Computed example of a mutant assay.
Amino acid sequence: MSNPQVETVTTGADKVKLAGAVVLLVAAIVAFYVLSKQGPWVQWGALLVLLAAAVAAFFTSESGKSLIAYGQDSIKEVGKVVWPTHKEARQMTLYVFAFVVVMALFLWLTDKTLEWVFYDLILGWKR
């Protein structure tokens, strides 16, 4: 990541922006239910406008800017990943399936062996 140090500095203006975002979010939910008798266009319009305002208020705060920077750094890191080819992915999938089948057979054989040892040899119960 490009920013190894974490700094937690919160200004008063930043707190006001975050509080405003929360107030706008609550107002969006309240407006959605209060405006239910006005029709769905007004109801959904108010919800979307207030939600957009809440998102805009959040992304202007330091927390929102940090989230955007984190997303940009994540996209850069995903670009650095060397993805397997189709052939490699298919081969690895077949290896996993083969391993699962072998493990299933091993566990079944172990279960039947223990069942035979405990029930037939030790306890003498015949089925």
Rank of each mutant, 00 (worst) to 15 (best):
S2D: 11
N3S: 10
N3T: 12
T8D: 07
V9W: 10
D14I: 01
K15N: 11
V16F: 09
A19E: 01
A21P: 05
A21Y: 03
L25R: 01
A27N: 03
A28L: 04
A28C: 05
A28H: 06
I29G: 01
I29N: 03
I29M: 09
A31K: 08
Y33P: 00
K37F: 03
Q38L: 09
P40L: 09
W41Q: 13
Q43M: 15
W44P: 00
V49T: 14
L51E: 03
A52P: 02
A54M: 04
V55A: 04
S63V: 01
K65F: 00
K65L: 07
K65M: 01
S66F: 02
S66G: 08
Y70L: 09
Y70Q: 02
S74M: 09
K76V: 14
V81N: 04
W83D: 14
K87F: 12
Q91C: 04
T93E: 12
T93N: 13
A98K: 05
V100E: 06
V101T: 12
L105S: 05
L105M: 06
L109H: 09
E115K: 14
E115C: 04
W116Q: 11
V117N: 07
V117F: 12
F118M: 15
Y119C: 10
D120S: 12
I122C: 07
I122S: 10
I122W: 13
W125F: 13
R127G: 02
R127A: 01
